[in-house]
Each structure stands twice: as structure tokens, then as C-alpha cells.
Amino acid sequence: MFAVGLIAVLVSLVLAMARAIMGPTMFDRVLAANSTATLAVLSLSLLGFVTGRPDFLDIAILYTLLNLVGTIAVLKYFHPGEN
């Protein structure tokens, strides 16, 4: 059952990466990177359950926090006028 969820999350990851490659402005790419990180957290948790060792959850907690820090850091150092 976890493999089904993992496949769905991987399909969504492909779509998010497509938006990150296509995105016309920088903000679309930041948004796609944010969604990619959330999906990566979900796929890490599901992968832990698929392999029967839910130890990956610690890494997932860490990655959730890194996601926020990364997004805010990119937006903090953005200067208006450079799309």
C-alpha cells in the first residue's frame, strides 16, 4: 500500500520539476522548489515504510525545516527588478 502512495508522490515530483524547468519567472521556480521539498519529505517517509525501516523520518523532519530556511533565504536576497 505504501508503494502506491510512493508512485503517486513520484509522479507529482516529475510535474513539480517540469514547472521548475518551465517557470517563466524566478518566483515560479522558487514555488516549484518549495513543492519539491514537501514532496521529498513525503517520499522519504513513504520510502521508510516501504523498506520496513521507519528511521528515515528523522531525516524528513530535518528536511522540512531546511525547506523553510531555503525558501526564505532565496526570497531575502532577491532584489526587485531582476526577474
Partner: peptide, 21 residues
């Protein structure tokens, strides 16, 4: 898990198809 996976795919289809940031 099936509903969650479907919602993940729906959200990312929205990310692809919607017209605006």
C-alpha cells in the same frame, strides 16, 4: 493513502496548468 496520492497529483497538475503565479 490513495486519497492523499490523488491530492498530491491534483495539486501538481494545478501547478502546471494554472495561468499565473
Amino acid at each position: 493513502i490513495i486519497i492523499g496520492g490523488v491530492f498530491c497529483i491534483i495539486g501538481m497538475i494545478g501547478l502546471i496548468r494554472l495561468p499565473d503565479l
